[in-house]
């Protein structure tokens, strides 16, 4: 069990390693990538409940990004699978609740529930995939700074930065605790009893508070006055503008026109 947690832990760190690569996409100003991702997510999410065909062309963007940034596809798919249970649980009842047949494929009638479930899964893969790609090409810390440059409240970005920084320390601490627990509990199943688990959780909270106090101390001894300052120069040049305008325009186009139907009718028109 703990080895699974260990692996998930190192996997999060792996996104950072990916973000350190040096490809044209990595070098792009983070604001351009952030805004493009935002347009992408809004376009994908704003489709109707039963939309499937309109969503498919959007897979072009992840494909291009993975290609340009030389990212490992299997790693990203694994990450996507890890989060997928949440969405599956949200959508799994659709087929039961919505039984009206929408599509007739020969003898098989596909209900609206199944269509909306499929659409939900597609939208999930696209949006979460886009977020993962953003982190893998930019790095979490840089995204926070881009957010701030774009006018997000400082309190919010600083919280995010500290959260990300100490996530690793917290996970490492929990792993050590779990390890200590499992080495001294001799039940064969390796399950933690409810009571022990609560105590461990309480202990972790106390350690976290102690750590927070020490961090505050370290901040104070470096003249901290309540505001975290960062020096960072970004340059939003013509490359960034082209990236944002190009992809943003494409997404809007895909959202507003039905490309699949257009292509279909074109092909049918030619053959017919």
């Amino acid at each position: 069990m703990s080895t699974k947690i260990d692996r998930a832990f190192y996997d999060i760190g792996h996104l950072d390693i990916l973000a350190e690569a040096d490809t044209p996409l990595h070098r792009l100003d983070p604001r351009a990538k952030l805004l493009t991702t935002a347009v992408f997510v809004v376009c994908v999410v704003s489709f109707g409940k039963y939309e499937i065909a309109g969503l498919l062309p959007f897979f072009l963007y992840p494909a291009v990004v993975i290609g340009l940034a030389e990212l490992p596809l299997s790693f990203l798919l694994r990450k996507l699978l890890l989060v997928s249970p949440f969405v599956i649980f949200i959508g799994i009842f659709n087929p039961w609740l919505d039984r009206e047949v929408m599509v007739q494929l020969g003898p098989v009638g596909i209900s609206g529930g199944w269509v909306s479930f499929a659409s939900l899964l597609l939208r999930f893969s696209l949006t979460v995939g886009a977020a993962l790609l953003l982190i893998a090409t930019t790095g979490f810390g840089t995204i926070c700074m881009a957010l701030e440059q774009l006018g997000a409240p400082r309190v919010f970005t600083v919280q995010l930065l500290l959260l990300y920084r100490y996530l690793f320390v917290l996970i490492a601490e929990s792993i050590r605790m779990m390890r200590a627990q499992s080495l001294r509990s001799f039940n064969a199943k390796g399950r933690i009893s409810y009571r022990v688990f609560l105590q461990m959780l309480g202990n972790l909270l106390l350690r976290t508070i102690d750590r927070a106090q020490r961090i505050h101390m370290a901040m104070l001894s470096r003249a901290f006055t309540g505001e975290i300052r960062i020096v960072r120069q970004f340059s939003f040049g013509y490359k960034e503008a082209c990236f944002l305008a190009g992809f943003g325009g494409l997404f809007l186009c895909l959202r507003l026109t039905d490309l699949t139907a257009l292509l279909g009718s074109l092909v049918l028109g030619i053959t017919g």
């Binding site: 930065l161 100490y166 901040m219 300052r229």
Partner: peptide, 13 residues
């Protein structure tokens, strides 16, 4: 070291 990069941390003070 509480900032997200070494540079930012050393620049903090």
């Amino acid at each position: 070291l509480f900032m997200s990069t070494v540079f930012d941390d050393v620049a903090f003070g």
